[in-house]
Amino acid sequence: MEIIHTENLTKVYKGGLKAVDNLNLSIDEGQIFGLLGPNGAGKTTTIKMLTTQIKPTSGNATVAGINIITESLAVRKVIGVVPQDLTMDEDLRGIENLLMVARFYDIPRGESLRRAKELLDLVDLTEFANKNVGTYSGGMRKRLELVAGLINEPKVLFLDEPTIGLDVQTRTRMWEYIREVKKKLNITIILTSHYLEELDELADTISIMDYGKVKVTGTPESLKSALNGDIIILGINGNEEAEKIKKFPDAISVQLVDEKTVRVKVASVDSELPGFFEFLLANGVKPQTMSVERPSLDQVFMEYTGRRIRDSEGGEDVMKQRINMRRMRA
C-alpha cells in the first residue's frame, strides 16, 4: 500500500534556485526508502516539504493519506522526524527531552514514560537517561535524536542524513539501530544520505536524485544489475595472454588496461567464473593475480548522472549551491 505520494512537487527558493523540480514519488508502506544524491540534490528540501516544515511552490503530496499543504498539523502527528542537525536541548536530561517531545503529541505521562524508557533501552542509552544531553557524545546524541522521532509511534519515520559527521564505527552502530527499529516497529522509513554504502546496506528501494529530479528508482540490487555485468580483473604476463583472453566466448567485453592488466566483463561472476577458469586452463593462461569488481551504487550513480558522487561533493558550484540553499531556507 502506498504511504507517500507526490505529484509534481516543486520548490523554488527566493533567488530562483529550483531545489526540487516536479518530483513524482510513490513510496510503499513498510520499507526503508532511500533518497540518494549529493549535497544540494534536493533531498533535504524534499524531506522538509513532506514533513511540512516548508511549503511547496507548486505540486502536492500526501503522507499516510494526509495532505501536506492543507492538513500540515495532522501530518506532523503521524510522522517522526530525525533532522540532519541536532535538536535535543542540551541543558535537559535525555529522558526529560523525550518526555517533553512526548507531551507535544499529548501522550499521557505514564505512557510517555513507558515509551521513553523502552526507546532509551533500544538504543542503549538507559544508563545515560538522567544525564544532561550536553554531556553526550556525538553518537549518543544521534541515537537520542533517533528515538525522539519514534516517541509518537509514527507511521513514517524520516531520517535526514542520520549518520552525517559520525566516524565509521559509530555510523555502523547507527545502521544496526536503524535496522533494529525497522525490525521491532515495522514502520516505513524514509532515509536520505549521500553515503552510498549506507543506502546499499539499509534501503529496500532507492531513488537517485540530482538537481532536484529523480533520475532512477529501484532496489539496490536491480539498479546494480541493470549495469549488466561484473568485472574480472586479471594480472597477466603480456599481450599474448591478453589476445587469448579476448577469445573467451562468454565475455561481454575485454579491455586491456595495460600490458599486465585485463578487465573482463561478464554477465555474472557467480555463473561465469567456473567456465572462465576452464577456458584459462585450456588456453594455457596463468594469471598472476585475479580480483572481481561487482557494480557499485557509485557506478549506478555515475551511469545516471554522468559523474561520480564523490566528485560532486567538493565541486565549487555545488558548495555554493549548498550554502545558498541554507541561506534561503533560513
Partner: peptide, 13 residues
C-alpha cells in the same frame, strides 16, 4: 542556533 527550534517546528504544536 542550537537546533531545538527545528524539533518544535516538526512537532504537532
Amino acid at each position: 542556533r542550537l537546533g531545538t527550534l527545528s524539533r518544535f517546528l516538526i512537532s504537532p504544536i
